[in-house]
Design a protein around this nucleic acid. Structure first.
Length: 607
RNA sequence: CGGGGAGUGGCUCAGCCUGGUAGAGCACCUGGUUCGGGACCAGGGGGUCGGAGGUUCAAAUCCUCUCUCCCCGACCA
């Protein structure tokens, strides 16, 4: 319950007739996912621009209740700050992220021409405070958090509140003297996050995640399984293993190698370009093929502003496997990459696309290259990365780097030598759980929270240090932890909606109950409804009195729409001293005596 | 950014192909009848058809440019 609410008289009662709750009979045409449709229909939000929303009365109330829960739990482990949204460029230069963040960062200039940006996350500001203020190990550990608006110029805002350009995040940052301290701060967040999402009534999974632009070692995401989500999660029903597909691994059954031990040998495969075509044509399985992907890694060229330095990256996978771009990106140190253009492929492989393979790539065998462009390419040596699933295999089939030909009897380690073996493939549903071997399930999920062990990335680059017990300067180790407030709301709606609307979990609903006199032109019904509303408010509930002069059907439909978990109908049975209590989630109703209604309702809501 | 779609009253949409100067349902206002699952009757207000330019006697409609929004692919809470 929110104690800041008025509940001391009818003049402060929330009367629907006086409030702005613009419900819509139809969903806006551009809404796709359930939470988006209903947030708009229920009058919670209105869109201002792509990925930018206004929160109206009901929406703001729900947000505030979510924030109450988050703050209440966070106060158990940390201290609340409020940091600026406007940051100077120099701050972000000091961590190196002014350029790393690219177009996702909103940038602006002040009147003096100085560069500023809108905060998309606050590692830099928090670390700046830490480096200026923290002096001694005695001051550690610290956990600082805030609930604040973040700005991110997303490539593609979408799905209502699920992916927006301005949103409220609870972000916290921990500073510890050593890794053991970080483990403890991380664990505290893990537990507090579980309590927060439990209290918000969400069903969620905690999954192993990849750290992305934040950097750092371990990280876990809190995921709500829903088709409205944008992530893929692999999970095991048996042992509880769960991981973002960006990170997930699996056990593979051993693949059958083709017999023989000959040298690589060309086979004519006219017009056969795809793995499937070639496999079918040669009567082999795609698992006996090597998939060769030609990519270009890109990074800003320090010598030539605005230009990109490129480097060829060749990735080898088993024929039936697909590349996991997050894993590759991590392997490349977070650098961007793209598929090679046709000319680049021909330059590198001296072969048209469709017949690429790792054997006899000109740039890997000295003497065969001559052109200027190849020499230039060599300055940044190409890398050949091979997925672990090819390790120990033999007699595989790959492209021959020659139009219309493939090679058979290709054996890794003999016929070509990868720069590195690594895990680069995406896990597929049905493959074995890496822990227990039972089949993995892959499903869509929405990320509502993320916890990271950052390590020394920011404290080191920004020069934060404290003195340890021995008077020696040491760099504190950091963690960072985020919760998307709007996403909790969106996820709750995705988890509980039907044709008529949605039902929010009690802790985050804008009201606990709507009291509906079925006909307000009957003065006694209205009076009784007001009395009931007052009693419930006095008992600590947040009550919405639907005193509108509307037909009952309209009021019922609206009540069903706006997400309030309970409704009390004040109608004909009043003459018998009774009203009807209706549960929005189960749609079941029961009669209750008006006298003692608050006690009855309390029992009901605590059950 | 690449690919697809859409902009006509507050909402959902028709009209556009085949130019002739704007419609429906819902919502809104007034009066009346209604009142347990989005009522009915009567009357009424509201749109320079996203914007700019062009073609034409005449443009929501045809042409060009542009802006915005949504959806599908690479990022993150």
């Amino acid at each position: 319950m929110n104690n800041s609410d008025y509940r001391d008289g009818t003049e402060h009662m929330h009367r629907w007739s006086q409030l702005f709750i613009p419900t819509l009979r139809e969903a806006p045409a551009d809404a796709e996912v359930a939470s988006h449709k209903f947030l708009v229909r229920a009058g919670y939000v209105r869109q201002l621009a792509a990925g930018i929303y206004s929160y109206l009365f009901l929406g703001q109330r729900a947000m505030l209740r979510i924030i109450d829960v988050v703050r209440d739990e966070m106060n158990k482990i940390g201290q609340e700050f409020l940091l600026p949204a406007l940051h100077p460029r120099e701050l972000w230069e000091s961590s190196g992220r002014w350029s790393v963040m690219g177009d996702n960062m909103f940038r602006l200039k002040d009147r003096g021409g100085r560069d500023l940006c809108l905060g998309m996350t606050h590692e830099e500001v928090m670390t700046d405070i830490a480096r200026k203020e923290l002096r001694s190990y005695k001051q550690l550990p610290q956990i600082w958090y805030q609930i604040q608006t973040k700005f991110r110029d997303e490539q593609r805002p979408k799905s209502g509140l699920i992916r927006v350009r301005q949103f409220i995040m609870k972000d916290s940052y921990s500073f510890d003297i050593d890794p053991a301290g970080l483990d403890a701060s991380y664990q505290k967040h893990y537990e507090v996050y579980r309590r927060i999402f439990d209290r918000c009534g969400l069903k969620y999974a905690v999954v192993e995640a990849h750290s992305g632009a934040m950097g750092g070692s371990q990280s876990q995401e809190f995921m709500v399984m829903t088709d409205a989500g944008e992530d893929m999660v692999a999970s095991c029903g048996k042992c509880g293993y769960a991981a973002n597909l960006e990170k997930a691994t699996s056990q593979l059954p051993p693949a059958q190698d083709l017999p023989g031990d000959g040298k690589p040998e060309e086979v004519h495969t006219p017009g056969m370009k795809t793995i499937e075509e070639v496999a079918k044509f040669l009567g082999v399985s795609p698992t006996q093929k090597i998939k060769t992907l030609a990519l270009m890694q890109m990074e800003d060229d320090p010598k030539h502003r605005g230009e990109k330095k490129t480097r060829a990256v060749i990735v080898l996978l088993r024929g039936d496997h697909s590349l996991n771009e997050a894993k590759l990106s991590a392997a490349l140190g977070g650098k961007d990459f793209r598929p090679m253009h046709a000319e680049e492929i021909e330059r590198t492989f001296l072969s048209p696309a469709g017949y690429l393979g790792p054997v006899k790539i000109p740039t890997f065998s000295s003497g065969e290259m001559g052109s200027e462009t190849q020499k230039l390419l060599l300055e940044a040596l190409p890398v050949l990365l091979a997925d672990n699933a090819l390790k120990g295999r033999k007699n595989l089939i790959s492209g021959a780097n020659k139009e219309g030909y493939h090679l058979k009897h290709v054996t890794p380690g003999r016929d070509f030598h990868p720069s590195e073996w690594m895990d680069l493939r995406s896990v597929a549903a049905g493959e074995g759980c890496p822990q227990c071997g039972s089949p993995l399930v892959v499903g869509k999920a929405m990320e509502i929270g993320h916890i990271f062990k950052l390590g020394y990335k920011y404290s080191q680059s920004m020069g934060a240090t404290v003195l340890d017990k021995d008077g020696k300067e040491v760099t504190p180790i950091m963690g960072s932890y985020g919760i998307g407030v709007e996403r909790i709301l969106a996820a709750a709606i995705e988890q509980s909606n039907d044709a008529d609307g949605f039902c929010l979990p009690p802790a985050i609903a804008p009201f606990d109950v709507v009291v509906t006199p079925t006909n307000v032109s009957d003065a006694s019904l209205l009076r009784t409804a007001e009395e009931i509303a007052q009693k419930l408010e006095a008992a600590g509930f947040q009550v919405l009195l639907d005193d509108r002069d509307e037909r009952p059907g309209v009021k019922f439909k609206d009540a069903d729409l706006v997400g309030v978990p309970w409704r009390i109908n004040v109608g004909k049975k009043v003459t018998e001293g009774q009203v009807e209590i209706v549960s929005r989630s189960t749609r079941k109703s029961q009669d209750a005596n008006i006298s003692g209604i608050e006690g009855h309702f309390k029992q009901l809501t605590q059950a």
